[in-house]
């Protein structure tokens, strides 16, 4: 999403926001089903929680589009979620309480289902073509990235004595 495309508000119809707003409603409804089926959170509570989550996401997208500087949408959405729930933000207690009715794993389930359906021929080809060597290296890349962070964090936490 480039800034120039965004600046020309009316010449380029604001497909993106409207499109995202609609698609997000569908995605949130799908998430609500998961939230009700899996963690068994009462539908009414989950619904209000999901509306809150939806609004946070939309504000994040608005900022992605109209903020004076560019940040990826995921960063803006995170920041809005954080600011809305900081202890000194008015009304944050209510927002936190509502968001608690939405289970984070239940929201990840549909994302991964879409991901499974999105696997393209090319990806299968790349995976086959890469062979076992690259697969082995990939496993160590993941292990190294995770273990490296764990060790550094552990060390600092111990040094801090926290």
């Amino acid at each position: 999403m480039s800034d120039s495309a965004i600046a020309m508000e009316r010449t380029r119809p604001n497909i993106d926001l409207a499109d995202h707003a609609v698609t997000l409603i569908i995605v949130c409804l799908v998430g609500l089903v998961m939230n009700t089926v899996g963690p068994a959170i009462p539908l009414a509570d989950g619904f209000v929680g999901m509306v809150v989550i939806y609004l946070i996401t939309m504000v994040g997208l608005l900022l992605t589009r109209f903020a004076p500087f560019y940040l990826p949408s995921v960063a803006w959405i995170s920041l809005v979620g954080i600011v809305a729930t900081l202890p000194w933000t008015p009304g944050s207690e209510w927002i936190v309480a509502q968001a608690k009715s939405v289970n984070f794993l239940a929201l990840a389930t549909p994302a991964l289902a879409y991901a499974g359906f999105a696997i393209a021929k090319k990806e299968i080809e790349v995976a086959k073509h890469s062979g076992w060597k690259l697969a082995l290296v990939a496993c160590l890349v993941f292990l190294g990235t995770y273990a490296g962070s764990v060790l550094v964090a552990e060390l600092i936490l111990r040094l801090q004595g926290a």
Partner: peptide
């Protein structure tokens, strides 16, 4: 399949928002 790809990005957004709400408190 083609349509699913951009939907992953959108489906992960509420998840990211939810995570944001755990950071603030």
């Amino acid at each position: 399949v083609k349509a699913a790809s951009p939907l992953i990005v959108i489906a992960i957004m509420p998840f990211i928002a939810k995570f944001g709400t755990t950071i603030g408190p």
